[in-house]
């Protein structure tokens, strides 16, 4: 690999990103602006996550990429291949073997351990954006802790649907200070954000923001006293491995509306099947 610098980005860029990451870790939940680079993939395909991964990867790391929990989707495969080629690092699909995991829309089912880094791809880092379009105003709201607006969004949900219908990118408050967008993970994953042993880094390439949660950070999902937060999932066991504690994808399997539910975390599902667990739809 002589054509590219290690992990594609030049060292100065990586230093700049690392500084942003360190600042983010020092101020959990705070969105740190950084000079996002053009990457050899379109915005929306994980340019923020890729830059963060590039900045934290070392030659000894083992890299895993998941997209909606799966290791085998286009996006996951191409990013994994990208770092195989540009950094020459080892890759894996096993959650526990990975030292750096880049993810889109999920947190792995298997609890992460100390020493691991979870890198999130973030499309819109500003949780207040949909109600307050002015960046100058949302920054002020963060700096002054004016977060009433966030509850207006949840209020609207309840008034329209009878319950908080926000099911992904569910806003959280970090260490009692910053209201933060956890990226579009299902709210089922929200409880895993808090008190996690691994480092969590969030990169938004188009929006040029990095934020972070150091290990064992307090993260609380926003709610109302009479409408408390609930981490919900489809009320089925996994059709392949029979797990009842994992987040499920619903698959339509024929033209007659037949469907099955399977773990969205493919590594978790395969590990369980290898250990002999069997769901009702398993061949």
């Amino acid at each position: 690999m002589t054509e590219y610098n290690f992990a594609y980005l030049d060292e100065q860029t990586k230093r700049m990103i690392r500084r942003a990451i360190l600042k983010g870790l020092a101020i959990p939940g705070y969105q740190v602006p950084f000079a996002s680079r053009e990457m050899p993939m379109p915005y929306g395909w994980g340019t923020g996550g890729v830059q963060v991964s590039a900045a934290v990867l070392t030659p000894k790391d083992t890299f895993k990429v998941i997209d909606q929990g799966a290791d085998d989707t286009t996006n996951a495969v191409s990013i994994r291949t990208f770092f195989q080629r540009t950094a020459g690092v080892a890759t894996t699909t096993a959650t526990s073997d990975a030292t750096v995991i880049q993810t889109r829309h999920r947190i792995p089912e298997e609890p992460l351990h100390e020493g691991q880094i979870l890198v999130y791809q973030v499309p819109i880092p500003e949780p207040l954006r949909f109600l307050e379009p002015r960046e100058s105003e949302t920054r002020k709201m963060h700096s002054l802790e004016e977060y009433g607006l966030m509850h207006v969004k949840l209020y609207e949900d309840i008034s329209r649907h009878g319950h908080i219908a926000t099911s992904y990118a569910y806003p959280v408050k970090v260490e009692g200070r910053y209201v933060t967008d956890p990226s579009p993970i299902p709210k089922f994953d929200n409880p895993k954000l808090g008190d996690m042993a691994a480092i969590q880094l969030f990169g938004a390439g188009r929006e040029q923001r990095i934020y972070a949660l150091p290990p064992y950070t307090q993260v609380v999902s926003l709610d109302f006293q009479d409408h408390p937060f609930e981490a919900s999932k489809a009320d089925h066991p996994c059709g392949m491995c029979g797990a009842t504690d994992s987040y499920l994808d619903e698959l339509i399997i024929d033209d007659a509306g037949g469907r099955m539910f399977v773990c969205s975390d493919t590594d978790y599902c395969e590990a369980r099947q290898a250990a002999g667990h069997k769901g009702k739809d398993a061949a």
Binding site: L131, E146, G148, L149, H151, Y155, I158, D226
Partner: peptide, 19 residues
């Protein structure tokens, strides 16, 4: 935002958390 949300915003801004 709905009429109720508009009126409720100031309440939520001063910390009311009971829908």
């Amino acid at each position: 935002v709905s009429a109720g949300g508009n009126v409720g915003e100031r309440l939520m801004a001063v910390g009311e958390r009971h829908y």
